[in-house]
Design a protein around this nucleic acid. Sequence first.
DNA 1: ACTATTTATTTTAAGCTTAAAATAAATTCG
DNA 2: CGAATTTATTTTAAGCTTAAAATAAATAGT
Lengths: 168, 168
Amino acid sequence: MSDHAIPLDAETKAVEMPEDHRDELRLWLRLLTCSNLIEGEVRRRLRERFDVTLPRFDLMAQLDKAPDGMTLSDLSKRMMVSNGNLTGLVERLVASGHLERRVSELDRRAQIIRLTEAGQAEFRTMAAEHESWIAELFGDLTEKEQRDLMRLLAKTKLSARRAVSGEA
Amino acid sequence: MSDHAIPLDAETKAVEMPEDHRDELRLWLRLLTCSNLIEGEVRRRLRERFDVTLPRFDLMAQLDKAPDGMTLSDLSKRMMVSNGNLTGLVERLVASGHLERRVSELDRRAQIIRLTEAGQAEFRTMAAEHESWIAELFGDLTEKEQRDLMRLLAKTKLSARRAVSGEA
DNA sequence: ACTATTTATTTTAAGCTTAAAATAAATTCG
DNA sequence: CGAATTTATTTTAAGCTTAAAATAAATAGT
């Protein structure tokens, strides 16, 4: 398994010896550093260039893919944030004219949220620039490196999901 | 460069044609998903097992590595969060008995923050378990995959840093 | 020594985020 | 039908986070 100098109990396996997981910890910290570094820069640029926050951008991105609108619950599931969080986020984006809400005709509890025309236009401008920022941030990786990273992250995602759910 | 069907201006390069950066965007979204998935699970477990938040855990982790304590500014730089953020975080951990602060003798503006004995003991218990959670979350990756991922993330970090600073 | 600047920290205002409790409409089932 | 449950959403309380303004002590330059 590991080449590290883990004290072993002579003949047997590492009995009662807590395993050394420092490598995994380093891997996690590096993954987190990358993610935070990029996310932080994207936040900064969104604010600087468009005076918009990342959560608002993410919300608009979801709605841009759903021209007929979505309910708060749908959005909540897609974005993996709480319902209460979305309530406030949508409120502010309605106030600023980016979103519109109407009560569902089929279910009087639910609301359908949509981008306004102005909201969509603004989002698409931002999205185009955002995409080029991401390309710039990953720019020093070759195509092969990008593919490899993609594959390894796919596996990481599955591994984490397995551990998050009851697991095996 | 890319195999994709980007409309080209016959003889020349892709003149005035915005490039397709969807692959980089997908890569970024996958990286973010992995990071959020793991971070969310770590937060959940820290809360469930130890009733502690991730920011508090991170703060204690920094202080555990500095037995003689650190100033708020040092902590701020190390943790890459704002000074104001730390003010509140430290306040709450002092109140709960995990940290102690004393005014620096050399500089009456500065405070030296340290883990209390109780705080250190509690942190080390948490850290040991935390490390095993991380190993579990990355558990499905082989050692080679972990090494490869480590290397690719190192390169990603450099790439992002280059783009964040003025760049080339 | 005095003024200007820098550095360490706190405060403030705004927004993001969550879990848990509350509301209210829809659905299920006896 | 009518009670019990589920589902959609909002509210609440607490904490995290930041940028920008405010304080206050230290340092530098004259």
